[in-house]
Design a protein around this nucleic acid. Structure first.
Lengths: 115, 115
DNA sequence: CTCTTTATATCGACTGTCGATATAATAAGA
DNA sequence: TCTTATTATATCGACAGTCGATATAAAGAG
């Protein structure tokens, strides 16, 4: 544990995926709602471009970290694809949080003002 | 102050540039040495690919944040281009540090485990 | 006199985001 | 009823930045 650190070059991908996975962990359902959730919860600080969000969800699904399922729209209602973390996704989320903590623990002393 | 936050999509660029600027602030001179400095100081956690580092230095120079000067090699010695933060670069470094602090302050509650 | 190290630089491939656009169903309003 | 706004998923080309490889060259070591 706490071995691998997030490398700067993968920070963007990692941060966005973590935001998505954490939102799903909180119970967010489909993509569009997830985007609203993140925006609202962050007070507008974090916003997902749809052209960014959907590829992320597809990527995570392909890697088996989230499972998507189309809602049954026989009783009317818009088509939606709901996502949930898989068991592997839960583990990955824990590991990614730890990787970020570790990254920051290492990164900050490197850029902090000299005393 | 403390208004703008670092957006996830610019994290990679921002982190690498911050590592470079902070290293120059500590007094590192030319590119190759800067790379060794960062690697050593981080205990190997952060390493600069040369194909990444030199474009960063050129970028920062073009933006007027660092000033580069070729060493006078009339008295022998390898050709080196030494870099130093400009006054604007110093200000930018302070602002970037603050932006990162702010990013993390906002990011962490978004991804932290629910209690 | 050859090999390694120091040093800067660029190149093509690749990944991921951005903003725009497409599609379509439902709800709201005139 | 017709039209517009909202909800919702998806893809596209352009762009930026990193990666690993390669080029170049001077200095020091063997």
């Amino acid at each position: 544990m706490a071995e691998r650190i997030v490398e700067p070059q993968e920070l963007s991908r990692s941060a966005n995926e973590l935001l998505v996975m954490a939102a799903l962990d909180r119970g967010a359902g489909h993509g569009y709602q997830l985007a609203l959730d993140v925006e609202e919860r962050s007070g507008g600080a974090f916003r997902f471009n749809h052209g960014t969000l959907y590829p992320i969800l597809h990527r995570l699904e392909e890697r088996g970290l989230v499972a998507g399922s189309w809602s049954d729209n026989s009783s009317g209602g818009r088509r939606r694809k709901s996502y949930a973390l898989t068991e592997e996704g839960e583990k990955h989320l824990v590991a990614e949080r730890e990787a970020w903590r570790e990254f920051f623990r290492r990164f900050w002393p490197m850029v902090e003002e000299e005393r």
